[in-house]
Design a protein around this nucleic acid. Structure first.
Length: 269
DNA sequence: CCCTGAACCTGACCGC
DNA sequence: TGCGGTCAGGTTCAGG
């Protein structure tokens, strides 16, 4: 479900309900996520959530004594549960604040993670080696071009590699490449400087627009307030089994690195 | 260091 | 209806 825009949408949605408040109780109904949920998570009572930050697709909850490093995996989502509404199936973690506001984490496939660390979260094994944020200045055409020089992998695989740049998932990789006019299968080393400029611009644009629209709802992604994200309506190629909206050529659907890619063989070179 | 493929899970959907 | 196969928004890890 979640790529960077969905994670950021989640962060913005839950922050006003959580930040600056004290935790009443945190309950772990099922600790079997990607890795076992840290035991500290069940003992957050009395701690205050000072801030909720994001690094790539990881949410970082500052609880004073340390941080929760929370990843939504493929199917994870968070919502503020209306009072006296029963829990849904697969809601594995719940955090109730002193004022009664309750956050629930649902994750049918359990690829997500919820870990506690008392150290600097940015130095954590999972975070430390992440590439630059796509919307920051560090991610620019000079950087991408330099990285591309040494790589023979298809450009789509490269931009989905979180060591290169974080936050670009399967949907937005296809969408960005379409907007940049570059085929997903093109070897990274065969991108010109101009192509890199174009691609960086398009990645930033697509992600920024998706955040503005509250993310992309395909099957079950909903924002923390239960509403869908509206970027689905802006998708040009991802999931398009018909013709290119721009030129009418049938959209190609291929598999790269075990993931679906969509592109227009006419618009993309 | 770079790259590939398997693995981790459940559920939805499609064709027979 | 039921059953089997396929696919799904991510990431780590082992091994070549």
């Amino acid at each position: 479900m979640p790529e960077l825009p969905e994670v950021e949408t989640t962060r913005r949605g839950i922050s006003p309900h959580m930040v600056g408040k004290q935790i009443k109780t945190a309950t772990v109904f099922d600790a079997r996520l990607r890795w076992p949920v840290s035991p500290e998570v069940a003992q957050l009572s009395g701690l205050t959530i000072n801030d909720i930050k994001r690094r790539g697709k990881y949410l970082l909850f500052d609880v004073g004594t340390g941080h929760l490093i929370w990843h939504l995996g493929m199917s994870g989502s968070m919502r503020i549960k209306p009072a006296d509404e029963p829990n849904l199936y697969h809601e594995h973690i719940e955090v109730e604040m002193q004022d009664g506001v309750t956050l629930t984490y649902r994750d049918p496939r359990r690829f997500g993670a919820c870990l506690f660390t008392a150290e600097d979260p940015l130095q954590h094994k999972l975070i430390k080696h992440l590439g630059p944020e796509p919307l920051g200045d560090e991610f620019n055409s000079d950087y991408l071009f330099a990285v591309c020089r040494k790589r023979k992998v298809p450009i789509k695989n490269l931009i989905m590699n979180s060591q290169v740049v974080v936050g670009v998932g399967n949907i937005y990789a296809s969408e960005s490449l379409f907007r940049a006019g570059i085929r997903p299968g093109r070897a990274a080393s065969r991108l010109s400087r101009v192509m890199c400029e174009k691609l960086v611009d398009c990645i930033k644009q697509v992600l920024a627009q998706a955040i503005e629209k509250g993310g992309t709802t395909l099957q079950d992604f909903t924002r923390s307030d239960g509403k869908p994200g509206y970027f689905s309506q802006s998708l040009q190629v991802y999931g398009n089994k018909g013709d290119c909206f721009t030129c009418g050529t049938p959209i190609k659907h291929i598999t790269q690195a075990q993931r679906s890619s969509y592109y227009c063989p006419t618009c993309q070179k």
